[in-house]
């Protein structure tokens, strides 16, 4: 069970309080109508499944209910960093 630092509550909490909402940084296309079916399908359904660093969107569901991003190693489960929505990760895969 992960121990997660909530960047809004500014302390570590148990994973039970959080939900993972999938891959981070999936921006909704600004003009959906301009997307082809394939582009829209990729936005909707296609996600990375890396072995190693992964950027994820989490929400402190039972706490402050704020979303934030997390960079996590999918092999070791180490959390490399958490950062707020709108910020970019400082730890990235090579």
């Amino acid at each position: 069970m992960l121990h997660i630092y909530c960047p809004h509550c500014a302390e570590y909490r148990e994973e039970e309080e959080f939900h993972c909402a999938g891959q981070a940084h999936i921006a909704r296309p600004l003009d959906p109508e301009a997307c082809s079916d394939q582009e829209w399908g990729e936005y909707l359904f296609f996600r990375k499944n890396p072995r190693g660093l992964h950027h994820e969107l989490w929400v402190h569901a039972a706490g402050c209910r704020k979303f934030f991003n997390m960079t996590r190693d999918t092999q070791t489960y180490e959390i490399k960093e958490v950062y707020k929505i709108g910020e970019q990760p400082s730890v990235v895969a090579e």
Binding site: H19, A27, V59, A61, I85
Partner: peptide
């Protein structure tokens, strides 16, 4: 409720 929040917080703040 979470649906509204995720769009507000991540897409249309």
């Amino acid at each position: 409720y979470e649906w509204l929040e995720i769009y507000h917080q991540t897409e249309w703040p």
